[in-house]
Nucleic acid binder design. Structure first.
Length: 493
RNA sequence: GCACGGGUGUCAGAGCGGCUAUGAGCGGGACUGCAGAUCCUGAAACCGGAGUUCAAAUCUCCGUCCGUGCUCCA
């Protein structure tokens, strides 16, 4: 069974197909760069990172485009507020975007077009739409006339063009713009004094929000492409506007073969959003939670389900990622003199324990089936944990060459599933990093070692009270002691 | 109001016609002086009602509750 995806437009899971065999063209709406990214952005780009990774892992050649909206009302507003040139502001937050996403181990898209580089294309499209009577010039800009293509209304959200008027409550009619109908949307906005603007046949101004994605997807992926993604809230009006513009301009239908939308991050059961003021930026969270743990927390739900962010989700993620990292480390420590030199590659080369290997292969198949089922990362994680348990159990039961061979296989197994596909593994170097290299640890190392020596003496003399007292003392300075077969090991809390 | 998603054990969260989800937490057990880690193992669930079916958490209908969209928002 091949890959199936839930298509927002068709409202069901459908077999995934591509326009060109073996290749996937994918466009995901990017951020408007006027502030730091919040958890919701993390979830969105993480969802599409997973999709990106799984498609590549399935053998597709993926062309992944993600834009930056670098001119927009909020950018202008912010730039005036903090008295910073809008270009500088935008540059700053694009840099911040990459820092945050790199930290979360999100692979880079193939290209990141910025809408200000496509203003000419937008103007051409708008001119064409006016010529084809899909758009009209008003006193304050150019608008798309939704009644010129009523069959395209509500394609993603199931709303009929007539129903919208009724429900929009008191907001309807108060647009104050040159729109003929409140459902029409701006293609070009007349510029105001002192604002960034571009010249156009309709005077100086700037593009509307929706037209940019049309211009950039057309320029980078063509008239029709395989996947268009974004947050759930973008279905309407943004993505529906794109359909209007693009299809009316090119005359081709459908512009997109699979519409994919990720679910939201909620805080205490409510949508996290800037307007509600209950949002956390990625960098706020990364001060408290390691990046891969956050990644685990967000992957641990299906990408379309809402996630209610709370402490328990993080605690679960700490346990889960800890188990996976522990197993990975254990395997690395057992495989050979120099684990770093181990070639990456096929995992079926050495087979000391056919039964366990068979089980792991079965788990890997289940894992693939889960990912093929609309990228069910939650299910995939549960398979990964099952495999992780099996590896830990077996590698501890055997020794010698068998153990080395098995551990080698295990490392490759984990690097494929946990590493390449889910992006949850640190590098081999990081996984093996001895805690002594932590500078905070360095500082108290001598004192701790001395206390541990005393405790070992006490324990040898079965003087448990004293041994425990020393352990308590250590825990007061933030040191956790764990006794192992090779003696006590300590780490900072 | 209209549209779209949902309501699964203590919690988080898969499954979406028959078969153990999984993780945390809780209960046993092994190993440990104890603790931790690890391994083995137990209890525990499908919002309410009706229907379809040999069989329903899974399909249909009704009810109910929650979230989201209809306005800038990933």
């Amino acid at each position: 069974m091949g890959l199936r995806v839930y298509d927002t437009k068709r409202r069901e899971k459908v077999d995934f197909s591509t326009i060109e065999p073996g290749k996937v063209s994918m466009y995901v709406c990017g951020v408007t760069v006027y502030d730091y990214c919040h958890l919701g952005h993390a979830r969105c780009y993480l969802s599409f990172d997973l999709i990106h990774r799984w498609l590549e892992s399935s053998g597709y050649d993926v062309n992944y485009i993600q834009n930056f909206t670098d001119i927009e009302d909020k950018i202008i507003k912010r730039s005036i507020e903090i008295d910073e040139d809008w270009r500088a502001l935008v540059g700053r937050f694009i840099d911040a975007y990459f820092e945050d996403m790199d930290a979360l181990n999100i692979l880079r898209a193939d290209s990141y077009p910025r809408c200000t580089d496509y203003v000419e294309e937008m103007i051409e499209i708008i001119e064409d739409l006016i010529q084809k009577n899909h758009a009209y010039i008003a006193n304050d800009g150019v608008y798309f006339d939704v009644h010129s293509a009523p069959e395209k209304y509500g394609i993603l959200t199931g709303q009929s063009i007539d129903a919208v008027l009724e429900g929009a409550g008191g907001r309807v009619g108060s647009t104050g713009s040159g729109k003929r109908d409140h459902k029409d949307f701006a293609l070009w906005k007349e510029g105001k004094e002192g604002e960034p603007s571009w010249s156009s046949p309709w005077g100086d101004g700037r593009p509307g929000w929706h037209i940019e994605c049309t211009a950039m997807s057309l320029a980078t992926l063509g008239d029709q492409f395989d996947i268009h993604g974004g947050g759930h809230d973008l279905r309407f009006p943004h993505h529906e506007a794109e359909i209007f513009q693009t299809e009316c301009h090119t005359g081709k239908h459908p512009m997109v073969h699979h519409w994919l939308h990720n679910g939201f991050v909620n805080i205490d059961g409510e949508k996290m959003s800037k307007s509600l003021g209950n949002f956390w930026t990625i960098r706020d969270i990364l001060e408290k939670v390691p990046a891969l743990t956050l990644r685990m927390a967000l992957i641990n739900a299906h990408y379309r389900s809402p996630i209610d962010m709370n402490e328990q989700i993080i605690n679960d993620a700490i346990k889960n990622i800890g188990r996976i990292h522990d197993t990975y480390k254990l395997l690395l420590e057992n495989l050979s003199e120099d684990p770093i030199q181990l070639p990456r590659g096929d995992l079926s080369s050495m087979l000391p324990l056919p039964k366990s290997i068979g089980l792991l292969e079965k788990i890997a198949e289940d894992f693939a089936r889960a990912m093929d089922d609309d990228f069910n990362s939650r299910e995939a994680v549960s398979k990964l944990i099952a495999g992780s348990k099996e590896l830990t159990k077996v590698v501890n039961q055997i020794s010698g060459d068998d153990q080395k061979a098995y551990a080698t296989m295990g490392v490759l197994w984990m690097e494929e599933l946990a590493g390449e596909v889910l992006g949850l593994l640190p590098t081999r170097e990081e996984a093996l990093l001895k805690p002594e290299t932590d500078p905070r640890r360095e500082a108290i190392s001598q004192e701790v070692e001395e206390l541990l020596r005393q405790r070992t003496i006490a324990r040898d003399g079965k003087n448990w009270a004293e041994a425990d007292a020393i352990r308590d003392k250590l825990s007061q300075i933030g040191v956790t002691v764990t006794d192992t077969a090779d003696g006590p090991v300590w780490e900072l809390a």
